[in-house]
Amino acid sequence: MNINTLDLNLLKVFDALYLERNVSRAGERIGIAQSSMSNALNRLRDQFDDPLFQRTPKGMEPTARAEELAPQVQLVLMNVSQMLAPQQFDPAQADERISIAAPDLVVMTLAPELMQQLARQAPGIQLNFVPVEKQQVFNRLDDGSLKLAIGTFANVPAHLRRKSFSQEQFVCIARNHHKDIKQRLTLNLYCRLPHILMTLNADQVGVIDAELKKLGKQRHIAMTCAQFSPIAEIVANSNLIATVPNSLASVAERAGCCVYPLPFEVERWEMELISSQKFYSDPLGKFIADLILQCQKNA
């Protein structure tokens, strides 16, 4: 017998005949016409060089060779069925540590809801949020030291899986009852008030400054910091204002800030959730990625 010429469907025919001992009933069991069943039986006999099933008054009786093959055929069919069946995954039984690269702003806004959901659904899963290092993030997703990355990325390799995480736009925040802001924030007032800027660079220039330069304007940067997390609290307790992604708006309002639209146009941008195809194809990976997107949607 040559395995290269074996049709897996013939094993299904064998199993049905062994169980039913009748060609017609075996065909009905697996959805094959009687004529096709007879043809398949002939091919099986050729493959195994044995009659396999012989007609008797009691039906199609298996030969000694068929009796020997039957448990092996059933095991093969069971293994193939298990291989093709969707993998069973119980989040409540998961016990894993998952590393996610994300900006501090994402952690601030996403983590509260995400951790509540994990406590209910998958209490054994531990999340390890780390800073986004854009020079290394794609390689770390490939080697598995990172499972997910959230942020704005350029030139994402085609083999990685990308899903939209959020659409962002800039807004301005200022303390409640700011002495200089009455009903609305004008462009001239925006440029005159002292700003706090989140930047990882030392040049005190951000995307906003490039847009203001096009308008012939310049703002006054009074302070910079390397994280978004302290900005809302600082603004709420000073006369500084800040231009931040709109996802920080709810945090800022809880801290005691008002949120204003910018008095000039700035393009929106997209945040993405990125993973390896291998991680997402795993039931655990799909569960975590889908839960993150659902929590972000509800945030």
Rank of each mutant, 00 (worst) to 15 (best):
N139H: 10
L160C: 13
Q135T: 06
L293E: 12
I241H: 03
E133C: 01
S164D: 15
A154G: 09
C191P: 11
I241G: 02
F14N: 01
F138G: 11
L11G: 15
G59T: 03
Q218V: 13
P194V: 14
L197H: 01
E20C: 05
V251R: 05
E270T: 15
Q277G: 12
E211W: 05
N79V: 11
D203K: 03
Q183H: 15
D142F: 12
L44Y: 02
L160T: 13
Q169L: 07
A94C: 03
E96P: 02
A33N: 08
L262E: 06
Q72Y: 11
K217F: 05
L75Y: 04
Q72T: 13
R43L: 03
Y18L: 01
K217V: 08
E270N: 12
Q121L: 14
A16V: 02
V235F: 01
P103C: 03
A154W: 09
T224I: 04
L240P: 10
W269E: 10
E113K: 08
M271W: 06
Q296T: 05
L200Y: 03
M83W: 09
G124W: 04
W269M: 10
R55M: 12
H159S: 14
E113Y: 05
Q135W: 01
C295P: 04
S99W: 03
Q294A: 11
R65K: 10
M83K: 12
P57M: 09
Q169V: 05
I30K: 03
S164R: 14
A149P: 09
Q54L: 00
N237I: 07
G256N: 09
S36P: 00
N79T: 11
I221K: 01
M1A: 07
S145A: 14
P91H: 06
I234C: 07
C172W: 08
L41R: 00
L284I: 05
N237C: 09
I208P: 04
K58W: 04
T199C: 04
C295M: 06
H159P: 09
L6N: 02
A252Y: 05
K278P: 07
D104L: 00
P112T: 01
H159I: 10
L262Y: 08
P194T: 14
R97I: 02
V251T: 08
G124C: 05
V137M: 03
E168C: 12
L291G: 10
C172F: 08
Y18G: 00
D143M: 08
F153E: 13
W269K: 08
G216L: 10
P194A: 10
R140E: 14
K278M: 13
F279G: 10
I208Q: 08
A236V: 09
G151F: 04
A154P: 06
I221F: 01
P131T: 11
F48N: 00
E270K: 12
I241C: 03
K12S: 08
L212V: 14
F279C: 11
D90K: 01
V251G: 00
G216K: 14
A289V: 05
P261I: 02
R219Y: 05
V107N: 00
N22S: 11
A154L: 11
P157G: 13
Q74C: 09
F14W: 03
A122R: 03
C258S: 12
Y190A: 15
Q88M: 03
D49I: 01
E96Q: 15
A40E: 00
R29F: 06
